[in-house]
Every structure is written in C-alpha cells, then in structure tokens.
Design a protein around this nucleic acid. Structure first.
Lengths: 147, 147
DNA sequence: GCTTCATGTAACTTCATATGTTACGATTCG
DNA sequence: CGAATCGTAACATATGAAGTTACATGAAGC
C-alpha cells in the first residue's frame, strides 16, 4: 500500500527552515526533500492556511515559519494536512446490515480506536522544538564521532 | 488511500462458516461478503496455508474451519494474511543520510511503534470465539427488539 | 516599465496496490 | 461422462499519493 508521507515531508521541511536564516524557496526545499517544488508549494500551502508558515513571491521570496517551534505539535500538522487516515487496514463496509459484519466492525473499531487515541495523544505532545533538539543532539554526536 | 479490508473479510467469512453446518462454497461466501468467488479463494487460500481452514473440490466441496474458534486470534489471521502494514502514514525515505530526516523518522517511529505494539497486543487477545459470542448477543437483541 | 525570480494553481501523467473479472485447468461426486 | 467446485494465471479497474508541465500573478531591482 502506498503510504502518505506528507507529515514526514513537512516535518523535514520545517526543521530545515528552522535551521536556516531567512526564507527558503520551494526549489531549495524540494532539493532537501528530493522532490518537486510544486509538491512543496502544494503541501506547504496547507500549513499556510493554518497560519504556521507564510510565503512571499518575487526575488528574496520563499517560505518562513511564523509559529513558535515549541507551540507546533505533530497533531497540529496532521490536522493541517487534512487529518489523513492513520490506518491502512479497514472495514469492508461501513454500515452493514449483516450482524456478523457489525460484530466484526465493532471488534476492529475497538482495537483501532484505542490505537488512534494513543497516536493522537502522542502527537499532541511532540513539538517541532523537540525534534529540533533531537536533531541538534544527532548533529553534536556526528561531529564528536569525526574528531 | 485505499485500505486493506482482507482482515475484515476473513473474519466475516469465518463467522459465517462457524454459524453454518458443513462446508460453504466460495460462491456462497462471496455472496455474504458482496464480492467475487475468486477473491474469496485467493484470500482463504492464505488461511489454508496456516491450517486454519481446509477446502474440498467437486460437488459437496467448499470451505470449512479446522481450528478451534477460541484458539484463533486476530493476530494469527493478520499473520496469515502476510502481516499487511497497519499504517497509512509513513516515512518519505527509510534510511536517510540527512540528520534532519533521521530525527523526523525517529519521532514518527516512536509514536507508530507504540501504537503498533498496542494493536498487536489487542489482536493477540481477541479470538473468533469472542466475535461469535458478540454476534450471538446482537442476534438475541435484534430478536428481542422484534417481539 | 522591463526583466527576473518566486509563488499559485490547474491539468495532466505516473506509479503502486487492493480489488474485481475472465478464463481455463484440475479434481471430485454421482 | 457431466456437473460442481476449487486453483491459479492473466488481465482490468479504481483509488489516491506523488510528480510534472504550463502558465498566470506578483514583487524586487535596475
């Protein structure tokens, strides 16, 4: 199954932007992500609607984070992307007449509902600042390993 | 994203088989599920490999459960289907050189890993017998509502 | 103003994959 | 032998993320 990697993408982009002074163009971000600038604009546009970033046109234009790193959570980003489905496994029919299928759906909803609640809770706790801190740690470690 | 509904399908099929004396044909199961008999054979074939069901050809042939209902767990069925991915959200790149992407992957792996562990634990606890019991309860309730 | 650099966005293509369908061979029962 | 049934390959369809092309819009600098 093809997985939605937009959350991964925007996190990657936002952290690069956080490490970078001034604006970054769609082209530069696309290079960081190994993708196409139009894809960047499309995806970042969703974050702009939530006021997390802004963009400017023309020379010296590009993208910039407008929110506090320690205020932006994975949950918010997931919402900004339109709350894509977490799970790749689902029902065959949403509102079945058949009682057998109802029992099956109930059992699956139970398990997946619990897992989703856990994910949402975790997502609400993790901020961009947390990721930036982890990145900085990895950066120090790599540097130390070189010396 | 298109979700894999095979787990839902096999549960539905197995419960119908459990309620039914003797073998059920792929055609009959396909009608229960609202799908095609070839899809049924394809999917049930995976369960046969694990010894959960068997099939006979010719007239009076069809499918039959060979395992104990209270021994078969959702976990086993998920395994029999080849352990399809639980999540529809993933990394953009599996083993990135970029430290930013490594930090992103680590954070996502953390959250999704925990959710997956929870799901596997739940799946290991739920048996076909549990579902059959829940179905019977729904059946009684519908009957009571009619009277 | 003109040129250049950048975003905004529509339209289209590509790719992956679950699901559905057709076709036909193999096996079993009566 | 003939009908019923599974086994399986090959092909078709559908969906949605991701990538691409094309062009319009707007801003900065000369």
């Amino acid at each position: 199954m093809k997985r939605d990697s937009r959350l991964s993408s925007v996190l990657h982009a936002l952290l690069h932007m956080a490490e970078h002074d001034g604006r970054m163009t769609s082209d530069a971000l696309a290079q960081c992500l190994g993708t196409n600038p139009v894809v960047v604009r499309r995806t970042m546009g969703l974050l702009r609607k939530q006021g997390l970033v802004d963009s400017d046109r023309g020379p010296s234009g590009g993208w910039r984070i407008t929110a506090d790193l320690d205020k932006v959570t994975l949950r918010q980003l997931h919402e900004a992307l339109g709350e894509p489905a977490f799970f790749a496994i689902g029902h065959r029919q949403e509102t079945p007449e058949c009682l057998v299928e109802q029992a099956v759906n109930a059992a699956l909803d139970d398990a997946f509902g619990e897992a989703e609640a856990l994910l949402l809770k975790r997502f609400a706790h993790v901020t961009l600042a947390d990721l930036a801190k982890d990145f900085a740690r990895r950066h120090r470690e790599r540097k130390a390993a070189k010396d």
